Amino acid sequence: MKNILVAIDLDGNEQKLLDKAYEFGIAFNAKVWLIHIAAPNPDFVGFEAGPQYIRDERATELREEHQQLQAYADALYNKGIEADGLLVQGATLDMILEESKKLNIDLIIIGHTEHNFIYKAIYGSVSLETVKQADIPVLTVPID
């Protein structure tokens, strides 16, 4: 195992995922790729991007998310793990699977939070769909 992909939401619950990334990275001397999938730009999904201040706010938000990912990667690096942070825009499941192939990932680590029926009906479960569709091992970590 040489490459591990860790999908991070940046919602404040990522420490368990980072701890698992460290455990597996050390155990297998593997590179850890921390990935955050940001929502696509509005024009990507057929809407106008809006006034300049909206675009500026979005750019600031993406820059802050990338800096947070890089801070997590730097912390892993300081503990002896080769790590990089990736900020990608698009559909979450598609991007996880696509980046896994591009980076020759051997293991995906993803968090799982239990949601109510209505949430599941509307949004589904990225962790469950990743397990179903990935052709490599997926470690799901309970985040509750």
Rank of each mutant, 00 (worst) to 15 (best):
D74S: 12
L103N: 00
I54R: 03
A39T: 11
N29Y: 04
M95G: 01
D56M: 06
I96M: 02
L17H: 05
F28G: 06
A71I: 00
Y53T: 10
A59Q: 02
I26H: 07
D9N: 06
K101I: 08
F24C: 08
R55Y: 02
I122Y: 09
I105K: 02
E23N: 15
S100F: 10
Y72W: 12
V88N: 11
N78A: 15
K20V: 10
H66S: 11
D9C: 00
I105M: 11
D94V: 10
A121M: 12
H36N: 13
Y53V: 12
R63K: 14
L17M: 09
D106A: 08
I110N: 11
N116S: 13
D84Q: 13
E82M: 00
A71C: 03
Y77F: 09
I81C: 02
T92R: 13
I122F: 08
G90M: 14
F47R: 06
L107Q: 04
A59T: 14
W33R: 03
I122K: 03
P40G: 12
K102L: 13
L69D: 01
K31F: 04
L34Q: 07
G46P: 14
A121K: 13
P51R: 07
P40N: 10
A59I: 05
I37F: 04
L62W: 00
I96W: 03
I26V: 13
A27V: 06
S100D: 10
A75G: 13
H112Y: 13
Y119W: 11
A39F: 02
E99R: 15
Q89Y: 01
L5E: 00
D43C: 12
A49W: 03
L87K: 08
Y77A: 15
K31C: 10
E82T: 09
S100V: 06
L93V: 11
D74Y: 01
N41R: 14
A21C: 01
H66Q: 14
N3Q: 10
A71E: 14
N78G: 05
D84E: 15
S100Y: 09
G111S: 08
E82A: 11
L103R: 12
N104Y: 12
L97P: 07
G90P: 08
L86A: 09
L97M: 10
I118M: 04
I108R: 12
G12R: 04
I26S: 04
R58W: 01
L86C: 07
D11Y: 03
V6R: 03
T113C: 07
K16R: 09
L10R: 10
Q67V: 08
K101C: 00
G46K: 08
H36C: 04
A121P: 00
N78T: 13
E65V: 00
D19M: 10
E98N: 14
T113S: 13
I108C: 06
L18H: 06
D106V: 02
A91W: 03
I108G: 01
I96T: 05
